[in-house]
Structure formats: C-alpha cells, structure tokens
Simulated assay, not measured.
Amino acid sequence: MKNHVYQPRSAYPIAFYARLSNDITTIGDNQAIEYNEVITNLGHGYDSRHGHFIAPIDGIYIFAVTAMGEPNEALHLNIVKNGAIVGYARAALSTEYESGTAVITLSLVAGDMVWVRYGSSIGSASRKVHGGGFNTFSGALLATL
C-alpha cells in the first residue's frame, strides 16, 4: 500500500471569485454563464469572456456556485468539467427570491476547464438568472498533484 504524502500548494496562489452583476440575464439551454464581475483572479485561471476556469496546473480544486432565480421561477444550473456535468446548483420555485449553493472538489490536470451553464427549461425552470452579485462562481487550488 502506497503512503500518501500531502502535497503543498503551488508556489503561487490560484483562486478566483466572480459574480453576475447584470440585473437579469436571460440564457439559453446549456449556455455558459459569463460571470462578468471578477473580484479575485489569482493565477489568471478564470476567463470572464467565456465564463470558464482553466486549470493552470495539476491539482485538487474546490469550486462553489450560488444560484438565484427570479420569484415564481426555479433555476437549474449545471457545473461542468470538460463538457461533462459534475454538479448542480438549484434555486427552488418560490414566490420569493430563492437561492441554492453547491460546493464540489475536483481533480484537474493543467488545461482542464470548469464552468457553469444553464441546465434546462423543463417544467417551471426559468431562463432568467438574477444578477446584482447574487449568482456567483468561485474556486481555489487546494493541493498540487
């Protein structure tokens, strides 16, 4: 049995935090959300033009997504790694503003991409994503591989 040795973080930090600042964004099925207000982008892994995080180095990363929809409409978001759904963030149907948060850890190699996209408009799901900083996407390197 191989002994696992903790690998320290990289010599430079990798972390980002971005949020959607627009009032309301209407989005299509499977469309990436372009979180346009970048607060933190250490290591320059987050690309706000496309809404993608691109891993600059191999490692274990943690990501958090908060979804907020409009009143009377549910919101379904997918967390995607290289085209495959790896997590979900949902805002429940309610007469008020509702939000949901997902936190996931992923093993990534340099060049892997992670993003958030609109899931679908099945049932009562909305195509409206509430802005004002309430929809967020963040991530950080936990350890190198």
Score class of each variant (00 low, 15 high):
His44Lys: 10
Ala143His: 06
Asn78His: 15
Glu73Met: 05
Phe63Leu: 03
Asn82Glu: 09
Thr66His: 13
Ser48Ala: 13
His44Phe: 06
Ile14Glu: 07
Asp29Lys: 05
Asn78Lys: 15
Ser99His: 09
Trp115Met: 06
Glu34Trp: 00
Val65Gln: 07
Gly83Leu: 06
Leu142Ile: 11
Ile79Arg: 02
Gln7Asp: 00
Glu34His: 08
Ile122Gly: 00
Gly43Thr: 01
Ser120Ile: 01
Ala125His: 15
Asn3Glu: 14
Ala92Ile: 06
Ser138Lys: 05
Ala143Gly: 00
Asn82Phe: 12
Ser21Gln: 14
Leu142Arg: 05
Val80Trp: 13
Glu34Asn: 12
Gly100Tyr: 03
Ala64Gln: 10
Ser21Leu: 12
Trp115Thr: 02
His52Gln: 07
Ala143Leu: 07
Ile33Gly: 11
Ala92Gly: 09
Asn72Phe: 14
Ala89Leu: 02
Asn30Pro: 01
Asn22Leu: 08
Ile54Phe: 01
Ala15Asn: 06
Tyr97Phe: 15
Pro8Trp: 02
Gly28Asp: 14
Tyr6Leu: 14
Arg90Lys: 15
Leu77Arg: 12
Gln7His: 05
Phe53Asn: 07
Ala11Phe: 07
Val103Lys: 15
Phe53Gly: 06
Tyr6Met: 10
Pro13Leu: 06
Thr40Lys: 14
Gly83Phe: 04
Leu141Cys: 04
Ala91Val: 07
Ile60Thr: 04
Thr105Trp: 05
Met113Ile: 09
Ala140Gln: 06
Lys81His: 10
Ala11Met: 07
Thr95Gln: 10
Ser107Met: 04
Gly123Ser: 12
Gly87Leu: 07
Ile85Asn: 10
Phe16Thr: 00
Asp29Cys: 02
Ser126Leu: 03
Val116Ala: 07
Val80Phe: 10
Tyr35Lys: 08
Val86His: 03
Val80Ile: 15
Pro13Tyr: 08
Ile33Lys: 14
Pro71Arg: 14
Ile27Lys: 12
Ile85Ala: 08
Met1Lys: 00
Ser124Glu: 11
His44Glu: 07
Met1Asp: 02
Ala64Tyr: 00
Gln31Leu: 08
Pro13Phe: 04
Gly123Gln: 05
Leu108Ala: 10
His52Leu: 02
His4Cys: 09
Ile24Val: 15
Ser99Arg: 09
Tyr6Ala: 14
